[in-house]
Design a protein around this nucleic acid. Structure first.
Lengths: 126, 126
DNA sequence: TTAAGTGCAAATAGTTTGCGGGAAG
DNA sequence: CTTCCCGCAAACTATTTGCACTTAA
């Protein structure tokens, strides 16, 4: 049976209290303020368990896994140039794949180039 | 200046001729039928260049990068249990982030659990 | 001719895991 | 007690890179 673990709780609390989308390393660095003896392996282990049980959301961007304490399905808009990640609400039913009406959406990721980076790029090439 | 390279062309042709979403390893295995002496490093190198220049789309699923020869922005529906990836058209303007109307979308990923896997899981827990 | 492309193998980055010790129930 | 959890360090996987050699232009 799954136990109450101070470390797991602390990791979950940290994720739920922040609005960015930290990597494992970033969670590690933050949680160490609370529990200096915690190890990176434990952070990885618990992040994976929390994601598997659906308590948190995870997705990969630029080769690193990012985590989100808000486990309600919503939209992540990610700029592939600067790496910025923004949250947006998911309009009800809008994204339902027509060939699988019961597909259970857990996360939506939109990749592209934000207008800031687009204007910088056009300056450079000018 | 960028040159015409038989290997790069062959990799691009392979990607454009298939409708799945292969990993680098899968492209390597396929392209080796055409050019047996090609190396995995070259496949990685060219896939990265093609993705950087926008000729192909790439995204990470289950810790591996997948590639798509269709570089028109469209929706990838990914089941996080069985790993199936499906293509869907992107309704014009539907996903435009309201706080950045000029955000240039290159790819949309919808993660979740397909109905097949969902029914299998409910059987197991029964 | 010469800069871009390549094979090879070593290196790297991110993540996972086995194990002996520690803590929750 | 006994089962899960943890720190540690080694292992693993996917990907990148340096270098000497090829090849397209």
């Amino acid at each position: 049976m799954k136990r109450f673990s101070k470390r797991r709780q602390c990791i979950l609390d940290d994720l739920e209290s922040r609005t960015d989308h930290p990597t494992a390393e970033m969670v590690y660095s933050s949680v160490r303020n609370e529990i200096p003896s915690i190890s990176l392996g434990t952070v990885y282990r618990n992040l994976k368990e929390l994601a598997d049980e659906g308590s948190i959301i995870s997705f990969t961007q630029n080769g690193k896994e990012h985590f989100d304490g808000n486990n309600h399905p919503h939209i992540h808009v990610c700029c592939s140039v600067c790496g910025k990640i923004g949250d947006h609400p998911l309009p009800k039913g809008l994204f339902q794949p027509e060939n699988d009406p019961d597909f259970d959406i857990t996360n939506v990721i939109i990749q592209g180039i934000c207008s800031d980076c687009a204007s910088k790029q056009s300056e450079e090439s000018a």
